[in-house]
Structures are given as structure tokens and as C-alpha cells.
């Protein structure tokens, strides 16, 4: 399992691996928002938590279509399915590798980009906490979507359509934590909901992903 994680991270860092792609997208989206909204720093500060969360979510989505598709194309998935590793742990490791290569950089970049959007002072901490809690769920749900569409040629658009509705609860509670945090309100309720969603998704979805992968490998 460690070998698979290591290999996926090395692949992400090598040429064409897509590391930094999500991060660059996140950067560009948040830089474009002030241009489109105009010079109204009060308004920017109000929408900053939502914009950052939406940007992070779309950046996560960007690299999903290669999560399993590349392994499918070169036959690696077939071989992994016949290897001693259970498919459940394969998809979990894949999701973890995706989070480390995409989600974690987004979490770390969010406070820097928050400055660009005039995010209010108390919001920075909650922005990071909400993204750190929420992005693992985005990776795991995304892996499920990738498992559903593996084997489809150009399945990227279908993948986005399948995954985006599933992202809604994470987005609602994640952005709510960040917004309340930025306004100095109490965040306990949405924070617990967000943590609950992430925990449930991480615990349950790998089984579903492995099951659909088995069907798709036939």
C-alpha cells in the first residue's frame, strides 16, 4: 500500500503528472474574481469564503479524470485487481494520493489567496480548518466518480456532472464554517456537520468505489 502511495505521488510530480495544476487553477480563479467584481473591498471580503471554497472545489475536480483513467488505459488497474491488495485499499490510497497532491496544496495556499480577496482577519484560521476538513471528502467522492466513469472514453465531463451534485453538502457546510468564522460567529454546528460528512464519506465510499470498479473491470 505504501508502495502504491509512493508511486502515485512520484507520478504526480513527474512530467505530465498534474501536480500543481489544481493549485494554478485555484490561483487563477481567485485572481480573476477581484477583476470581475471590481474595486469594492467590502464586497470582496463578504464573498471571499464562498469564492475560495468554490475555487478549491473546482480545482479538486480538475484532476479527477486522470485519477483512475490512466491506470485503466495502461492496464495497471487489471494488474492491481489481481494483486494481493484489496481494491478497497487501492481506491483509498488513490484518494489519499489525490488529496496529498491536490487537496493539501489548496489548503496551504488558501490563506495566501485570502489576502487577495480581502478575507477578514478571523476568517483565515477557519478557512484553513474548513478546507483541511472538507477537501479529503472531495477527493474520496471524486475517486468514486472516477471509478464510475473508468473505461469511458472522454469520461471527464460525465465525471464532473456526476460528482458536482455529490459535492454540494461538503460545499455548503465548508463555506458556512469559513463564512461564520470570517464574521466572528460561532462555527460549531457547520464544523461538526462538515467533519461528519468527511468521516462518513471516508468510511463508506471506498467500498462503493471498489464495487463499481469491479463491475467496470469485467
Amino acid at each position: 500500500m505504501i508502495a502504491l502511495l509512493k508511486r502515485d505521488l512520484v507520478l504526480a510530480l513527474r512530467a505530465g503528472g498534474g501536480f500543481g495544476l489544481g493549485l494554478a487553477f485555484f490561483l487563477i480563479v481567485t485572481v480573476l474574481v477581484p477583476f470581475s467584481v471590481g474595486p469594492q473591498s467590502a464586497l470582496l471580503g463578504t464573498i471571499a469564503p464562498g469564492v475560495l471554497w468554490l475555487g478549491a472545489l473546482l480545482a479538486c475536480l480538475l484532476s479527477l479524470d486522470r485519477l483512475l483513467a490512466l491506470d485503466w488505459e495502461d492496464g495497471t488497474l487489471d494488474l492491481l485487481a489481481t494483486a494481493p491488495l484489496p481494491l478497497e485499499s487501492v481506491v483509498t490510497i488513490k484518494a489519499l494520493a489525490h488529496w496529498l497532491a491536490t487537496g493539501l496544496p489548496l489548503v496551504l495556499a488558501a490563506p495566501v489567496l485570502g489576502v487577495l480577496l480581502n478575507l477578514p482577519g478571523p476568517g483565515f484560521l477557519w478557512m484553513v480548518i474548513s478546507l483541511a476538513l472538507g477537501t479529503p471528502a472531495l477527493s474520496v467522492i471524486g475517486t468514486f466518480g472516477a471509478a464510475l466513469t473508468v473505461g469511458l472514453k472522454r469520461g471527464g465531463l460525465l465525471l464532473s456532472l456526476l460528482v458536482l451534485p455529490l459535492y454540494v453538502p461538503t460545499l455548503i457546510y465548508g463555506a458556512e464554517v469559513a463564512r461564520r468564522g470570517a464574521e466572528g460567529m460561532t462555527v460549531a454546528t457547520p464544523l461538526m456537520m462538515l467533519a461528519g460528512i468527511s468521516a462518513a464519506v471516508i468510511a463508506l465510499l471506498p467500498f462503493a468505489s471498489a464495487a463499481v470498479l469491479r463491475v467496470n473491470l469485467r
Binding site: 508502495a3 508511486r7 492496464g75 494481493p84
Partner: peptide, 24 residues
């Protein structure tokens, strides 16, 4: 099992590819 495709990653070296499968 060895099917029509070899399950190789083009950006990994020969040793890295083989070491990965050995450790799996």
C-alpha cells in the same frame, strides 16, 4: 496475469516500475 497491456508507467524508470510491482 499478463494481459495485452503491460501496466507500465512511462515516466517511471524500468527499475521503478519493477520495484513497484515487486513491493505490491
Amino acid at each position: 496475469y499478463a494481459g495485452h497491456s503491460d501496466g507500465l508507467k512511462p515516466t517511471l524508470s524500468v527499475t521503478e516500475n519493477l520495484t513497484f510491482w515487486a513491493s505490491v
